[in-house]
């Protein structure tokens, strides 16, 4: 049994909240640089230039890339041979979020109830997903996610007869409907299979995969490639102002499903798709 102190967890979460919001990951930055060279729309190109310049300013000045520093989405993989000492794991994570959003001058964007809507003033609670795995490791991944793109996400409970072509069309329809709203160029996470909640969670997890990477499954890899090309032919372009850079990447994850089911969840993210990871 390996002991891990909650204080260590809080400290790591605090740092990751700040780092993820100040520093754009290299996969996204490189994809943006590449898109700049390929973009034929003058306004689209100007938007991409502003976006990378913005990332440079955020990094140099230690300020948030985007004012919407999101809700903190936390993925925890905890080994079954780990013992957490000093308090609850969830409390330690929330304390890290509280401290990170306070000392990092990040925006507090959480309200305690969807209808009464009073700001909790410290960006807690985080949304935490626990996963119990073998071994004595503890992996924590933080993905702060803004709401502009989150609001454009959709879930479809499709029929098996709709097939892979039906799924592709549903994904494309979601992107077309989103248009300029989610701050394109977007990053798109798709979850196929499982059930209602599993598809949504898979879509969110798909966003953790670097842009430019592909599924190990051949038919899914082909689907990713085909869809990215189609999405970039919609004309939406950077910020919806026209062009061929509508998305930087689309990552698709799958899971087994019921004989009657074919759920498809599309989680849209923006060009500020953030995440930070640590192994304790």
């Amino acid at each position: 049994m390996r002991e891990i102190e909650t204080a260590k967890i809080t400290e790591a979460v605090k740092k990751m909240c700040i780092d993820a919001n100040y520093f754009l990951n290299s996969d996204i930055y490189e994809a943006l640089e590449c898109a700049k060279n390929n973009e034929s729309s003058p306004i689209g190109k100007e938007m991409l230039c502003q976006i990378t310049k913005n990332a440079d300013i955020a990094k140099a000045n230690n300020v948030p890339i985007c004012q919407d520093t999101g809700m903190a989405i936390v993925f925890v993989e905890i080994g079954q041979e780990v013992h957490i000492s000093g308090g609850s794991l969830a409390d330690a994570i929330n304390e890290g979020v509280r401290q990170g959003y306070t000392v990092g001058y990040l925006r507090k964007s959480v309200v305690s109830d969807p209808f009464i809507r009073v700001n909790t003033k410290d960006n807690t609670p985080a949304i935490i997903h626990f996963n119990l795995v073998e071994g004595d490791g503890l992996k924590i991944e933080i993905a702060p996610k803004g709401a502009g793109s989150e609001n454009m996400s959709k879930i479809y409970m499709m029929k098996p007869s709709d097939g892979i072509e039906g799924a592709k069309q549903a994904i494309l329809d979601t992107i077309e409907a989103a248009g300029p709203n989610p701050c394109p160029p977007m990053v798109i996470g798709v979850g196929c299979g499982g059930n209602f909640e599993t598809a949504a969670l898979l879509a969110k997890k798909a966003l953790l995969r670097p842009v430019g990477s592909h599924s190990d499954k051949e038919h899914i890899k082909e689907m990713e490639i085909e869809l990215l090309e189609k999405i970039n032919s919609t004309g939406i372009g950077p910020q919806g102002l026209g062009g061929k850079t509508t998305a930087l990447g689309i990552n698709i994850e799958t899971y087994a499903t019921h004989i009657a089911c074919m759920p498809i969840a599309v989680n849209i993210s923006c060009h500020v798709t953030r995440h930070a990871v640590c192994n304790l």
């Binding site: 502003q50 300013i57 955020a58 985007c66 964007s109």
Partner: peptide
């Protein structure tokens, strides 16, 4: 430009909360 928040801030020279302070951001 959505998401170009640090760049846009450099063009804001004065800022003052004039109403609804309790709403935070």
């Amino acid at each position: 430009t959505g998401g170009a928040a640090a760049l846009i801030s450099s063009h804001i020279k004065k800022a003052e909360v004039i109403a609804y302070d309790d709403l935070g951001a």
